[in-house]
Lab assay of single mutants.
Amino acid sequence: TTVHIGNVTYHFDNPEEAVKWAKEMAEKLGLRIEIHGDTIRVE
């Protein structure tokens, strides 16, 4: 599972961890997340 924040990509072996981490980052940055299969974007 990959999480994209701007130009930076993070890789997670556990999809649930990826979603949890992306949600925390989105809250901190005042952004929202979009999930497309195994790709998560924070925008």
Results as ranks from 00 to 15, higher is better:
Thr1Tyr: 12
Thr1Ile: 14
Thr2Ala: 07
Thr2Gln: 09
Thr2Lys: 13
Thr2Asp: 07
Thr2Ile: 11
Thr2Met: 09
Val3Glu: 00
Val3Arg: 00
Val3Asp: 00
His4Phe: 11
His4Cys: 13
His4Asp: 04
His4Val: 14
His4Ile: 15
His4Gln: 13
His4Gly: 03
Ile5Lys: 01
Ile5Ser: 01
Ile5Arg: 01
Ile5Gln: 01
Gly6Ser: 05
Gly6Asp: 07
Asn7Pro: 08
Asn7Val: 08
Val8Arg: 15
Val8Thr: 11
Thr9Asp: 08
Thr9Cys: 13
Thr9Gly: 05
Thr9Asn: 06
Thr9Pro: 05
Thr9Ser: 12
Tyr10Val: 12
Tyr10Ser: 03
Tyr10Trp: 08
His11Trp: 14
His11Pro: 04
His11Lys: 09
His11Asn: 06
Phe12Glu: 00
Phe12Leu: 01
Phe12Val: 01
Asp13Cys: 12
Asp13Lys: 09
Asp13Leu: 10
Asn14Cys: 06
Asn14Pro: 01
Asn14Gly: 05
Asn14Val: 07
Pro15Asn: 11
Pro15Gln: 13
Pro15Trp: 15
Pro15Thr: 12
Glu16Ala: 12
Glu16Val: 11
Glu17Ile: 08
Glu17Met: 09
Glu17His: 07
Ala18Gln: 01
Ala18Met: 03
Ala18Asn: 00
Ala18Tyr: 02
Ala18Arg: 00
Val19Gly: 04
Val19Thr: 07
Val19Pro: 00
Lys20Leu: 10
Lys20Gln: 12
Lys20Tyr: 05
Trp21Asn: 01
Trp21Cys: 04
Trp21Ala: 02
Ala22Tyr: 02
Ala22Gly: 03
Ala22Ser: 03
Lys23Phe: 09
Lys23Arg: 11
Lys23Asn: 09
Lys23Glu: 10
Lys23Gly: 05
Glu24Thr: 10
Glu24Phe: 15
Met25Ser: 02
Ala26Glu: 04
Ala26Val: 03
Ala26Leu: 03
Ala26Cys: 06
Glu27Ala: 07
Glu27Leu: 09
Glu27Lys: 09
Glu27Trp: 04
Glu27Met: 06
Glu27Arg: 08
Lys28Ser: 10
Lys28Leu: 14
Lys28Asn: 09
Leu29Gln: 06
Leu29Ala: 08
Leu29Gly: 06
Leu29Thr: 06
Leu29Glu: 07
Leu29Tyr: 14
Leu29Arg: 04
Gly30Gln: 08
Leu31Gly: 15
Leu31Phe: 12
Leu31Cys: 13
Leu31Gln: 07
Leu31Met: 15
Leu31Asp: 07
Arg32Val: 15
Arg32Asp: 12
Arg32Ile: 15
Ile33Cys: 08
Ile33Thr: 04
Ile33Glu: 02
Ile33Asp: 01
Glu34Leu: 12
Glu34Ile: 15
Glu34Phe: 14
Glu34Met: 12
Glu34Arg: 15
Glu34Lys: 14
Ile35Val: 10
Ile35Gln: 05
Ile35Leu: 06
Ile35Pro: 02
Ile35Phe: 10
His36Asp: 14
His36Arg: 13
His36Lys: 12
His36Val: 13
Gly37Trp: 04
Gly37Ser: 05
Asp38Glu: 08
Asp38Ile: 06
Asp38Thr: 14
Asp38Trp: 01
Asp38Lys: 11
Asp38Pro: 07
Asp38Gly: 10
Asp38Cys: 05
Thr39Pro: 02
Thr39Cys: 13
Thr39Asn: 08
Ile40Glu: 02
Ile40Pro: 02
Ile40Asp: 01
Arg41Gln: 05
Arg41Lys: 10
Arg41Thr: 12
Val42Pro: 02
Val42Gly: 03
Glu43Asn: 12
Glu43Asp: 11
Glu43Arg: 14
Glu43Trp: 07
